[in-house]
Design a protein around this nucleic acid. Structure first.
Lengths: 240, 240
DNA sequence: ACGCTTCCGTACGCTAACGTACACAGCATC
DNA sequence: GATGCTGTGTACGTTAGCGTACGGAAGCGT
């Protein structure tokens, strides 16, 4: 198995003890995800959970009129489909691929079986869920109190943390959907960042030029979330 | 034990099988909560979890500059202190009593012990957590897309659902804190509702006069959350 | 080379909510 | 019954973001 395509590039899978991982490994199905692919639809039963390695998935809350807002983002540190083991089976939100890449999927029932063994995986998934919860809470506050400029910075940094490169493929239209604002608003905020030399934007490709510069502009929300992820998920990799 | 003060007025405790409940019952400590009491402080270890019966607790996300936003509300249907069994032990948010009343508290370790028996209580708490998650997500969307008028309606209805009466004791100042807006904004929105004959406001006491009227004005967020709570937590009371 | 589509930039009036300021009415205290 | 505090109403200029509209540039297909 090449290092390029190891399921254990996903942090949750990486944190499992070897025997635990082995029980799942044969059932992990590698899958290539394209921008815009839908992994979870509102209210629909899921067949699988997804462990991203180098892709990013957005959790979106969509309203009747079609307006939407991103309530969380999942990358190699997490899993898509928590409602399976939380017991609800479905959620009222959607999960959309925000950055193309690879993920490994697992039949829902197999994850549930492993979860209810009440081994280390259970604690791991619960702590991850709590981290996600923090992310959602902070997003709610950020939506309320901070400027679009700051929110854009937060969004870029959260994405960047989950990407291997400094470039993300993403139109302003899509970012606007995620943040739940107008496309023109994103154009303006991104323009400021570009004029400040922090990013370079070109037809659906954003290159981050000055990450410290972004961090200087971002609101506290980014830091709070990141710190909580580190606190809850800074496990060692046993059995490696 | 008078019906007035039965811990099983809390829906989660009510949903337990009798033997499961009996293991906890002796350790449930009745406690009277006053408006403004703090049950959980950001980042601090909790000694207890709280099962409200007729009080309401707000989960608040507080920022460095003191601005805050409510990210969820807990009443007789829930529990305060989920981070104990989720494994994080602490959270970055606060829990403040929004409406005075009674709750039963339990030593954190005892709840964890029971949770890790992996019995029905575990599933119950996890489903409750998922419901709370939905509430937080919907709050984030609502903050973004809906007018203060609608959000006030949502807030009133969510509170009302958790109260035995039609009256809530709450100044506009406090509501403003919860919603993360100016006090004057609340005065204006509440004024509209009052002129429309839906509520009557008088120095920290709100009486709801026309609940259907509120429901007609509220945004979809209220319905989404309520539906999800019903779906996830509409259990029968076994062993009664 | 041409047209078409996608993506980005800009402009303008509009509105909800903000910050600030102040007035007044209930209620308690002394 | 003067004083003070708390809670509510109102007013006014300011601003961030909205809705809408339009123009242009980059890339794609033929």
């Amino acid at each position: 198995m090449s290092l390029q395509h190891d399921p254990r590039q996903n942090h949750l899978l990486a944190a499992l003890a070897l025997d635990e991982y082995k029980r799942l490994a044969d059932n992990l199905e590698r899958i290539e995800l394209k921008l815009g692919d839908s992994l979870v639809e509102s209210g629909q039963m899921m067949r699988h959970v997804y462990f991203p390695t180098d892709c990013i998935v957005s959790l979106l809350c969509v309203m009747e009129d079609g307006d939407s807002t991103e309530i969380g983002v999942v990358g190699g540190e997490g899993i898509v489909g928590i409602s399976l083991f939380m017991g609800g089976e479905t959620t009222p939100s959607r999960a959309i691929v925000q950055s193309a890449g690879t993920a490994y999927r697992l039949k829902g029932q197999l994850l549930k079986d492993e979860f209810y063994r009440a081994g280390p995986l259970q604690g791991l998934l619960l702590r991850y869920t709590q981290a996600l919860l923090t992310q959602m809470a902070q997003t709610a506050v950020c939506n309320r109190h901070h400027s679009l400029d700051q929110q854009l910075c937060r969004w870029l940094l959260l994405s960047l943390d989950r990407l291997p490169t400094n470039e993300l493929v993403m139109t302003q239209e899509l970012i606007a959907n995620m943040l739940g604002v107008r496309r023109e608003g994103v154009t303006e905020s991104a323009g400021k960042l570009q004029r400040a030399g922090l990013i370079s934007y070109h037809r659906g490709r954003i290159s981050i030029l000055d990450r410290p510069g972004l961090e200087a502009r971002v609101c506290e929300c980014y830091g709070v979330v990141k710190k909580e992820y580190n606190r809850l998920l800074s496990y060692h990799r046993p059995g490696l």
